[in-house]
Nucleic acid binder design. Structure first.
Lengths: 178, 178
DNA sequence: CTTACTGTACCGTCTGGACGGTCTTGTCAA
DNA sequence: TTGACAAGACCGTCCAGACGGTACAGTAAG
């Protein structure tokens, strides 16, 4: 049955993210993922023939999800809103879910630093696009980097900023973005 | 001889950072560090009885170095300069050395996520201090986060921003910081 | 005699991965 | 409707290798 396969795949991916977040990125072993996903190691290896493929799928899913969210936010957003503002809002929302949703990235980098390349190229792409759509380069730089900082804090599960401070930051950025 | 011990210690620490940067954070094994440092594995374990101790030393040295640099920049800086501006300049300089100087952090996190706690607490401390010294909270938030973003890009060896864009960013931040 | 190592041999553990086997499901002729 | 059977989805076991760490004998310097 097809539904079962898809289900397994997603369950495994989610399980991998969970394990990385909860047990630390160094503990992201196939065994751990398999047992967490309620799947045998063999079953895992059936879906992802190699650990690298698992990581790759994690990266690709992550990027695709963000891309889709960005696209839908762009079309659904208020018409007067600048693309930069949309980007800020979306990223802030995403960071608001207090889960460090992507700590598996650390595992991926540890496994093989090359997993960064698709991420980097995606980011560059997004940035270049924003650059073409934003008249004020200075505002773009400040906002983009600040968002990147927010993302980083979320990734490292940092608690430097309070909830209120985060909200103040976002509203300041939106002000700068115009 | 004391000098010998200190030398070994520093050589090992530097070697660890190099290995992490060049071979990827996942390849930071004791064997690799020892051979890179020109030291036997036994000698390494003499200086750092455990891998965790090595990591801890890496973290502590890193934090201490930044703290010292910040302190000296504060006293040496132009008298009219705000502490936030000093922080921005120092961090930007630090990020300008295009080496991702701290990719060993990934190894440390993979080894044990608790290595983040001293870093987080250090950052919070710095931030709190800046908060007490900066009248404009909004400006502080934006600048601090943007610097954090810059740090993150450096850490991930990202090439999204060009050299000129980085400089423009920093000058914009200094403008915001007043 | 102590300090600060070097060098080697070794152990237990864990990991990714290969493999062969097993259960389930869909297909299709009779 | 049924029974044979191929394909797909998954399990459990096993293994080579790498890793962190230990133990210990040796040595060069002071």
């Amino acid at each position: 049955m097809k539904a079962r396969r898809v289900n397994s795949r997603e369950k495994i991916l989610a399980a991998a993210a969970d394990v990385a977040r909860e047990s630390g990125p160094g503990s992201l072993s196939l065994d751990a993922v398999a047992s967490r996903a309620g799947v045998s190691k063999g079953g895992l290896l059936y879906n992802f023939p190699t650990k690298a493929k698992l990581m790759q799928a994690l990266v690709e899913d992550y990027l695709r999800a963000f891309e889709r969210a960005l696209e839908s936010a762009r079309t659904a957003g208020a018409t007067g809103e600048s693309p930069l503002a949309t980007y800020i809002k979306l990223s802030a929302e995403h960071a608001e879910e207090s889960k460090p949703s992507a700590s598996w990235i650390f595992s991926a980098i540890a496994e093989d630093p090359d997993f960064l390349t698709p991420i980097k190229s995606f980011r560059r792409q997004v940035f270049e696009r924003l650059k073409g759509e934003t008249p004020d380069l200075k505002a773009l730089l400040v906002c983009y980097l600040a968002i990147e900082g927010l993302r980083s804090m979320n990734l490292f599960d940092s608690d430097v900023l309070s909830h209120d401070e985060r909200r103040l930051l976002v509203s300041s950025l939106l002000e700068i973005a115009g």
